[in-house]
Structures are given as C-alpha cells and as structure tokens.
Simulated scan of single mutants.
Amino acid sequence: MKLKLLLFAGLAESIGSPVLELDVEEDKLTPSQLKTKLAELYPEIAAPLAGSFIAVNQAYADENVFISEQDEVAVIPPVSGGEPENMELTRAPISIDQVTAKVLHPHHGAALTFIGTTREFTHGKRTTLLEYEAYEPMALRTMHQIGDEIAARYPGTLIAITHRLGSVPVGEISVVIAVSSPHRDAAYESSRYAIERLKQIVPIWKKEIWEDGSEWKGHQLGPWNPTAEIPGQGGVSK
C-alpha cells in the first residue's frame, strides 16, 4: 500500500518536507500502527510523534479506524491554538470591527470580543516574531465544529473566529473570537469555551522566533488529546 502523509510544523521541518510518501506491506493500518512504522523509519521524530494524532480525511482518527491507500492522511502534532462568513483563516491583518460586526444582533444584549496578540516576552525570552501554519481544510472544519458545539451548548449565541496565518509581528493580532448572546453569562462562557476548544482541536501551529533561536509551540496545557472533553465542561455537545 502506498500512503501520502501530510506533515506540519516541527514534523515537516525535521523530515524536510510537508509531504511524505510511504510504502507499507499491509493493505490497511490503524493510526497507532502507522505511528509505530514512522518512528522506526524516522527515529528523529519519534518524540514529537508520540504526542501526535493521525487525521484521516480531515477528521481525528481513533483506533477503530483503518487507514487505506485512498485516504487523505495527516500527522497532527499538538496544536498551538474562511469559509463561509463567520470562520476565516487569513494572511492579512485582522480587523477587530469586521469580525465583531458578524455577530451583532438586535435581539442580543451582550457581545464580547477576544483578541489574541503576539506578546514580546514569554518566560523571560524575548519573542521577535510568530509564524503560524495550519492544515487549512481541517482547521476550517474544526472551527465550524466549535461553532456547532457552541450553538448546542448556548442556544441563540452567535460566534465568529478569524485566525491569522504566516508572520505575525510583536503587538499584532493573531486571532479574534467574537460572540454575542441574549444575556452576558452565555457570552462570557461561550467566549472562554471557544478559545479553549480552538487551542485543543484546531490544527494551527505557531513557531516562536527569538533573538537567539526558534521553536514550534503546540498545546501547552498538559497531555494533548483533541478527542477529550474540556475539564469542567462536560461533553463536547448537549
């Protein structure tokens, strides 16, 4: 079986290519079997591979999924945290007003806008630039998933997310999440839920570039599991 694997962030950098073609004897593999083979063939990525997930046809795959030759397969390292209207990826500077305007509604008495920017110092290290990369089709799909989850959890709430890709200098905006709701409690809760889920499941990575080096950063809140529930939030949908 011939597989074409999509790689991202530090994995692609270590291999030297965003695409890896692999010949295997089996005619189907589970995600864990594929990761084992990759670690054997490319020991230099064994450590980040251990914390990565396999996506099949733009969806995170569990061990009940068998990968076959016709599948689109991506190896997703821990994420950093468009398409129709409210969910967008862009390489241009983000307009706060434009994103917020997408959720304003005459029946809603509360609107909140979360703005994420590039900060200059993190744990004593001076950042000069952030570089963002995404598995774009799946990133948009999972951003829409967040919108669906919020609609189920907080009926009537509207949400818009715009995330920047490419280079984002210090002080510039990397992500804007706008929400509106009839009442403020739902607005606060859904805004927090959206940013936590974005960091958990949306395949976007950031590379921190410092004065003396750089590093790809992903999920930094304990072991990464995009299929898990958010602590204290119950299930991902109701």
Rank of each mutant, 00 (worst) to 15 (best):
P48H: 05
I96V: 08
E88S: 05
R153F: 11
L49Y: 05
A134C: 06
E136L: 08
D71M: 13
E131A: 04
E120S: 03
E131H: 13
A152M: 14
G82W: 05
G116W: 14
Y154C: 07
P155G: 01
A61W: 15
T117L: 12
L112H: 10
I54D: 08
L112Y: 13
E40C: 03
Q70F: 11
N64H: 11
A101M: 02
A111S: 07
S52A: 12
E136I: 00
F66E: 14
I150D: 05
G166H: 11
G124H: 06
T118W: 13
G81Y: 11
V75I: 08
V75G: 09
V75A: 02
E40L: 06
E44L: 10
Q58P: 05
Y154V: 01
E133P: 01
N64Y: 11
H108S: 12
K125Y: 11
P48Q: 04
E72A: 10
I45C: 06
I150K: 08
P93I: 01
H163M: 12
A50V: 02
A39Q: 07
H144P: 02
T90S: 15
F53P: 15
G51E: 12
E40M: 05
G156R: 04
M143E: 04
T128K: 15
Q58E: 15
I115A: 08
G147C: 10
P43E: 10
E44G: 01
A160C: 13
G156L: 08
I94Q: 08
S167Y: 14
P84D: 12
E72R: 01
D97F: 00
P106E: 13
G116V: 00
P78N: 02
F53N: 08
E83Q: 01
G166F: 12
A55P: 09
A151W: 06
V73T: 01
R119T: 00
R91P: 07
T113Q: 13
T100M: 14
M138K: 14
H108R: 08
E136S: 08
Y135Q: 15
A39W: 02
A47C: 02
G116M: 06
V99Q: 09
Y60L: 01
A92H: 06
V75C: 11
T90Y: 06
K37D: 13
T142F: 10
G124S: 03
S68K: 12
S95P: 03
F121H: 14
Q98W: 10
E136T: 01
L165S: 07
V99L: 15
A151V: 06
I159K: 02
G156T: 05
Y154R: 07
T113S: 14
L112W: 10
T90K: 14
L129W: 06
A101C: 00
Y135K: 02
E72H: 01
E40N: 04
D97T: 00
I115L: 09
D71N: 11
T162Q: 14
L89G: 03
A151P: 06
G156P: 09
P93C: 12
I96F: 15
I150H: 05
M138P: 10
E72Q: 10
E72N: 06
L158P: 00
G109T: 01
H107V: 09
E133W: 03
D62Y: 04
L112T: 00
I161N: 03
P137R: 07
L89D: 10
A101H: 06
L140S: 08
K125F: 13
P84F: 04
E149L: 01
E72S: 14
T157P: 07
H107Q: 13
I94N: 05
H108M: 15
E131K: 03
I45Q: 03
L165R: 09
